[in-house]
Design a protein around this nucleic acid. Sequence first.
RNA 1: GGCGGGGUCGCCAAGUGGUAAGGCACGGCUCUGCAAAAGCUGCAUCGUCGGUUCGAUUCCGACCCUCGCCUCCA
Length: 477
Amino acid sequence: MALSLFNSLHRRVEAFSPLFPEADAIGFYCCGPTVYDFGHIGNFRTFVFADLLRRYLEYRGFRVNHVMNITDVEDKIIRQVAATGLSLAEFTGKYTEAFLSDLQTLACLRPHHLPKATDYIPQIIDLIGRLEQRGIAYRAGDGSVYFSINKYRACGCRYGQLVTLDPEAQQRTERVSGDSYDKDDLADFALWKARVPADGPVFWQSPWGEGRPGWHIECSAMSMAILGPSFDLHLGGEDLAFPHHEDEIAQSEGAGLQQAGRPFVKHWVHAAHLLVDGKKMSKSLGNFFTVRDLLNKGFLGREIRFLLTSAHYRETFNFTLEGLEASRSALSRLDATVAQLTEKAAGSVGSALGDPATPLPLESALIAALDDDLNVSKAWAVIFDWVRETNAALASGSLSPSAAAERLGAWKRVDQVMGLGARPVEEAPAAALALLEKRNAAKAARDFALADTVRNELKALGWTVEDSKTGSKLKRL
RNA sequence: GGCGGGGUCGCCAAGUGGUAAGGCACGGCUCUGCAAAAGCUGCAUCGUCGGUUCGAUUCCGACCCUCGCCUCCA
């Protein structure tokens, strides 16, 4: 068995194998955010998915070189810079920090590289220069540089690897015609945008005059600069497949830096969109949530992560607050099992490796699920089967401390992939502890009316009581 | 108009040519002073209509509904 993934390039599930088996790490690139605002959870679905895939690859023994770009120069950013009077770096720095913080909230491992477009201007200029040398890029009257799809095709390259394109049949939307100024062909796209007054202080010198890079070229330049001209995996949201990724292929392969027969990217993987209440998230509908919006509602990052990873990455997923509540309930059940296991395992002696004669099916089942195009729904089913089975063993008292430790170890390895982590511990305040004492005393005196009253008081404080043979415990609601 | 996803229990969501995982919610039982937690247990014939097949939710066709993309939105 090996990991298989849907490859957008061939529109089918394929076994994953490294492009360069002898290399010490897999080249892994995921298109990152444009830092003009806080990211919403739709954006983060893609990043959490990328994180899950990275974690799983690592779990399966691959070393991963994870790159995520930060687009810190772009139309919306320039408009905001002009409006706020901040410098480009100040403005984008704020949202970059917010993004990284949100990523951490969602328990995403930090990518090994987080290149900013503005730090790669020389590489971008070199790449455009190379395309110009090869006759694929051309200067327009306004000083901008465009990519010629026709010239690219004339070189024997294929434009339209990720999507089926029928240019004749394409509806000419306003967006298209409105963008048709100095281009030779409507489909050509900008590599370098000549400076215009509205750009203000945001511009760089180049062989073509002052200006700034186009969007697509950033990713080509940064990914190849860090990972080389050919690498293994490139991820992104499904909306990026066209034109962004298609253009990335064109630029990168058009520059001809790859070894003969090597593609720019071996596996393209796209994550489907998130809907909110059945509709695409949009600012006009007001139906989007940022990570901090949800945090303010009292949810935890791990609950959001759980929900975001509950559906297969290639299916559109409908996000609702009710769904997030349900995730919270499911997670607390899992937490309770892990907590019990931890308690039980504390009694185990020494290495606590357990009995190897009783191999645990949890990990092998998880691998079978995730190897199958990252079937995360199936993975959760496996995990919850394990929860029920473990609870039953725990309830029957048949689990020895070492067996508990063994199970706990398996769970911890599984969680290296799922990334839920432990529930943050919250110490009960003195007031709640006092009430607990009061209730214990009432119970001992068989004054159940008082005991129940105190229990309600605790509930009002946000704590619930669970009685068991070994005593009463407080649990956060 | 072109292209591509979807329609599976109240909600979310896997899956398979031989009568359908898991989660949330809900009902019953056990445990409990009562609860909670946990366990046990109950709860769907897979959008509609045809076709292929011994047999289809799974394959084919038509239709209905829905979501997305079509040049700088993850």
